[in-house]
Amino acid sequence: MALIHPTALVDPAAELADDVSVGAYTLIGPEVVIGAGTRVGPHCVIEGRTTIGRNNEIFQFASLGAAPQDKKYAGEPTELHIGDGNTIREFCTFNRGTAQDTGITRVGDDNWVMAYVHIAHDVQLGSKTILANNATLAGHVHVGDWVIVGGLTGVHQFVKIGAHAMIGFATALAQDVPPFMMVDGNPASTRGFNIEGLRRRGFSRERIAQVKQMHKLIFREGLTMDAAKAQIAALRGGTDAEGDADIALMLDFLERAKRGIVR
């Protein structure tokens, strides 16, 4: 049987794995599903159509699965999906999706989400990210794997942040950030590429050199975006399959960027 504190209110219709623990005064609604090994702290509220995977650590005072902060929301049966192995610290707020998008707010696996982080409706958060204290992701934001978002950063609705990017402290982010880049400021500016992060993730020297070349073509050569994409595409065909995958990741992102990219 799940380890539920006697003061917690867990709806009988909620589905909790046998070893889920629930702290004092926490409220869990009838449409909530929580997987094995997950621990929910005291004074949390988990509601709506919320599915939480395995081995998550949810600290006290988190609010997960509340209705979206969208004036168009009219009670549609939207959802919040949280993967496995996430750490969700105090006072985080994750909202459900809206009918105007996919209807699902998604959080991947192994994310480190610090206190007071807000994940708004329809956000698609990848895996192995770090969101520092008070980072705020507005509606429909997409964040790739391995991204780091600095504390007190605000991300405008519909912005996309590519994999392995790093967003500095207190950045006001209103445009898309290509993969691998380092951005900060208000207004935001691209300062370079995330070389130290790539080293820590085991990127070879050849892959890092190729990322450096992509950064140069986009931000340092004065090329149009179409010209930069053509020259990045021409880098393909080397002996490193992972390097070709990095190029494909960049080209796909640039094709899908709709708000312009941070320069």
Rank of each mutant, 00 (worst) to 15 (best):
R106M: 04
A241M: 01
E47P: 04
T102Y: 02
A36T: 15
I208R: 14
R205D: 05
T153N: 05
M114H: 09
G202T: 07
Q124I: 01
F169Y: 12
A230Y: 06
I52P: 01
Y116D: 13
E57M: 11
L223R: 12
H81I: 09
D70Y: 02
L3T: 14
S127T: 04
A120H: 12
G108I: 01
G83I: 15
K128S: 12
N194F: 04
A248F: 05
A62H: 04
D252I: 14
S189T: 13
T78L: 03
N95R: 13
G97P: 12
N55A: 12
G35H: 03
V177S: 07
A174F: 10
H164F: 07
D84W: 06
F169K: 03
D11L: 06
Q175T: 05
V177P: 05
L254F: 10
Q210R: 11
G75W: 07
G162D: 08
V10G: 04
G97I: 01
R106H: 08
G162I: 00
V107C: 12
W112P: 00
I195R: 06
W112K: 12
R200K: 11
G75N: 02
D240S: 08
I261M: 06
I148D: 02
D11A: 15
T239D: 12
V147G: 10
D246Y: 10
G75Q: 07
F158G: 08
A2F: 10
R54T: 02
